[in-house]
Each structure stands twice: as C-alpha cells, then as structure tokens.
Design a protein around this nucleic acid. Structure first.
Length: 465
RNA sequence: UCCCCUGUAGCUCAGUCGGCAGAGCAGCGGACUGUUAAUCCGCGUGUCGGAGGUUCGAGCCCUCCCGGGGGAGCCA
C-alpha cells in the first residue's frame, strides 16, 4: 500500500499527528544537529510555513543524501507526523525515507538562505516564486482573483470575455501596442504610408487598453457583466505603479447610476479584503511583520468604516484650505496631481476615498455629462500608498450629447457606430469601472513596487522570461 | 519622456586626500546531544558595468554609452 501524499499545509495541522504520510516539496533550509540527525524544512507552496522534517542518522542514505542536501533541492519524504517538541511549529515529520528528486547546486543556485533585494530577485523572476515574499504575494493574488469571481457571481454579474485585439485606435486610454503580421523588413507601402489593407485584419489593429466599450454592449443586454483579463498600455511609464501588461477587472451594469457604481466598488473592495484576511492569514502576518507594519490595522479599518465620498469640487476646496505646501497649485478645472491625491487619502481621510463629479474637460468623452454642464459623473477610488485603484463613471446614454462630446474631443462618431447604436436602440443609464488587479495586490500586501506583484512584469525595455 | 540617485566577490555593502582590492553573509573543511536566519573555528573569492580621457599612478576625477532604483507625467 502506498503512503498518502498530502500537502505541507495539511501536514502542519494538529489533526495530522499520528498519520504516516508523504510530502513533496523543495528544501528551504537544513540544520544539522549535534545528535547526528538533521532538520530539513520543506515547502511545497501550499502555505507560507514549512514542514520541519527530522531526518534521523539511521536513514540508509543519511550520509549520502541528507548531509549533502542543499537549499532549493526537491525531495519526497515519508514519515509519521508528530507533535513538535521545539518552538516555532506545531507538528513535524519523523522521516522514514527521504528521496532526492533534483539537487540544486549550492554554489550555483542563486537563492541563498538570506534576504535578497527585490531588485535582484527580478533578475531571477523564474526562481523568485520560491521565496517567502513571492510565495505569499502569489497566494494573495490568487485569493483576490478568486474573490473577484465569488463577488461578482454572487451579485449576479455575468463574466464576458472581451477581445484583446481591437481595431479601434482611439479607445481613449493612452498609447497602444500595434498588432501586425506585415513583414517589418519589407512593409508594403501605398502613397508613402504602410498599406494596412494588406495587414492580417485588413486594417490597423492593436492590443486592447480596455474592454469597457465591448463590455457596455453586453451590459446593455445581460444587465450586469464583468471582464477579467490582461490589458496593454504602450506608455513609456517608469513608475512603481505602472506596467505595460496588467490585469484589469471591469464590471459594467445597466440601470446603474453613479451612486450604484460607487456602492458596488465599495462592496467589492471590502469583500476582497475580508476574504484575503480570512484565507491568507499566515501570508498577511508576514506582510505585516516584514513588509508594512500597520498593514493589518489599516485594512481592518477599511472594512469597518464606510468609504468617504467627496466631489472633485469639495476636494479642491479641502486642498486649498489645507495649508499644505504643494509643488503644483490646486485649481478647479485642473487634474489633481499625485501629491494632492496622496494628501486626500493618506492625511485627510486616512483610508479609501471616492472622488466624483470631475470637470468634463479632464475626463473621457463617454462619461455622463452632469446637469451643471461642467462636470461628468466620473468616480475614482483612491487608497493610501497606491493612489488610484479604481477609475469609473456613469456612461453617457443620451445619443445627441454623446455625439457632441465626441466631436468636441475630435473623435469621428462614424468610427463608433456600434457604440452609438447602444444609445439608438433601447438606451439605458449604465455605469462601470476598472480595477487594476496589481494595484489591489499592492494595496493588500503593502508591496511597494508593482513589478513585484505580477509573476513576470513587462515594463518599457523589459520583456525577459 | 524629464529630474535625482546608483553600478566593487555568488549576495549585501565599505573603500578616507588619486597610492598594493576588503568586510559580513553564502560556499567549502572542521567542531558541537532538538535546531528555528542554529552557533563556533579555519579557508578561498574580483573584466571595480563598458569605452575613451586626465595623471608617474584611477574603484575614486572628466566625457560618452549601457544597466538598476526613486520621483514626475500618463493611468488601473
């Protein structure tokens, strides 16, 4: 009879005491005891903590394998789970056998039994998931993703897979990556320009910067929908908050007005945080202790308090009366700078704040014009440390106003014929927003750089791995 | 794209006024009756990011290039 293979997580539970089981994973550290036996910490990624394996000197391969076992090596161990007499773990395994699957050369394996800088670990992006920090980040990211589906499914939203390739070159959210099969060394030309009619789709095509417009089409049929997928921005952004390829969640709901949108965003953020605190307690304790002290209390506060709602106009007044010295002056009609947003969320509110009703000239054409004729029904959710985590709006559902807004910003309505059709046939008020998953992971874990919350970050000049 | 900082051993860093390249950790060898980043003793480590220049002499000063980081803008 073969021994049952269980996870390290399970082996660490007191329920497992007395069971003889098998565990498979990677060696995090080995400590040789004076008594002629060794402690081996095995991690299999199922949890933050390791299983301490006691490898007795009586093992037939003790000298040959155990004493030469190196950090990073993969092992299969069998033995009985016992209560641990030492500090620091509840259970441990008394190994009856230990099999080495693959050694990691002690001199060549980059990861050492010490802290590495995150910058150095980015050079080893294929190995960094084996570290405490990246294991924890990955599990939290997983939980946030799962919680996203739980939340929207629970609220009756339907997932919609919007296209990643689009022919619309003006979705309005920045530079796009061109998608082409034209040969770069001999591009067919017509009248001095590339002949895009010879390209794969017979026209120019790009990677999407947002699934919103297509999402609106489905919301105006299914009612409540959400998308969850990768998004691409070819901006030359070099910051700790921007990626060229990132994951975005975009709910869109028919018959939702701005206030419904804001309440949805608040319920969603709170649900994700509470699920993560509940299911990733060990990982979150690590972030609290080693990455950002005070993190858990701050997140708990988010759950306990209703979000502060503040109109753009109110925000400008608060900033002007703050007495704070800003590098950029605050004036109504000008977009808020990072320093302004930081002041509002980190000092004035000390938690998430929803700003809404922005001047129409600094926002996108599709946002619904308010009755004052000066502002649009936009909303941004700002959080301490990260800044804008959600951007959304109620959409303009009135055909004539939408067309005049498009013309005002120089867009050709005929290019958006299908988007305008949604207003021609059975138009309804509707609203939605986009949440950057990586920014949510940053906010939840306290990780300072967005490149450290996605497995293989793509940024300008960096497409390794 | 702009501003600032930075690049020295496998890793983290020090290197004074321009004068023989040096610590900790990791690694390797040894010691040690249950360890928790184990501890103690011993040993070795180099294209000083690259190319020019100044100088009797450059890790250090100058120019250009490359990489990394932080901030700003754009936004999720």
């Amino acid at each position: 009879m073969t021994t049952q293979w269980i996870s390290v997580t399970e082996a660490r539970k007191t329920d497992s005491i007395g069971r003889t089981v098998q565990v498979r994973g990677w060696v995090r550290t080995r400590r040789d005891s004076k008594g002629g036996f060794s402690f081996i910490e095995v991690n299999d990624g199922s949890s933050f903590g390791n299983l301490q394996v006691i490898a007795d000197g009586q093992l037939t391969n003790y000298e040959a394998d155990v004493l030469t076992l190196t950090v990073g090596s993969s092992v299969v161990v069998e033995g009985e789970i016992k209560g641990s007499t030492g500090q620091g773990q509840v259970t441990e395994m008394a190994a009856k056998s230990l099999r080495v699957m693959g050694l990691a050369s002690a001199t060549d394996y980059p990861l050492q039994k010490k802290q590495h800088t995150f910058e150095k670990l980015r050079e080893w992006a294929h190995l960094r998931p084996r570290t405490n920090t990246f294991g924890a980040v990955t599990r939290v990211r997983d939980r946030l993703s799962y919680a996203t589906h739980q939340f929207f499914q629970g609220e009756g939203f339907v997932i919609v897979h919007t296209p990643l390739i689009t022919a619309s070159d003006c979705e309005g959210a920045g530079q796009m990556f061109r998608v082409t099969t034209l040969p770069l060394d001999k591009i067919p030309m017509v009248e001095g320009k590339p002949d895009v009619s010879k390209d794969f789709f017979g026209k120019s095509s790009y990677l999407t910067v947002s699934g919103q417009l297509e999402g609106e089409a489905y919301a105006c049929a299914l009612g409540k929908i959400y998308t969850f997928g990768p998004t691409f921005r070819a901006e030359n952004s070099n910051t700790s908050r921007h990626l060229s390829e990132f994951w975005m969640i975009e709910p869109e709901a028919a018959f939702f007005e701005l206030i419904d949108n804001m309440q949805l965003a608040e319920r969603y953020l709170k649900f994700m945080i509470s699920e993560t605190l509940k299911h990733c307690a060990e990982d979150m304790d690590f972030f609290e202790k080693r990455i950002q002290p005070g993190l858990l209390a701050a997140l708990q506060l988010v759950l306990d308090k209703p979000f502060v709602h503040m109109s753009y106009t109110e925000a400008v007044e608060i900033l002007q009366k703050s007495g704070e010295k800003f590098d950029y002056p605050v004036a109504w009609g000008v977009d808020l700078q990072s320093e302004h947003e930081r002041y509002l969320t980190e000092k004035h509110v000390q938690g998430p704040v929803i700003l809404y009703n922005y001047p129409k000239d600094i926002k996108s054409f599709y946002m619904r014009l308010n009755d004052d004729g000066k502002t649009v029904a936009a909303m941004d959710v700002l959080v301490p440390g990260v800044g804008e985590i959600i951007g959304g709006s109620q959409r303009e559902e009135r055909l004539d106003i939408l067309i005049s807004r498009m013309e005002a910003v120089g867009l050709k309505p005929e290019d958006y014929w299908w988007y305008l059709d949604l207003r021609r046939f059975g138009s309804v008020p509707h609203a939605g927003f986009g949440l950057g998953l990586e920014r949510m992971v940053q906010y939840t874990t306290g990780m300072a750089n967005i490149r450290d919350v996605i497995p293989f970050p793509r940024t300008p000049g960096n497409c390794d791995f």
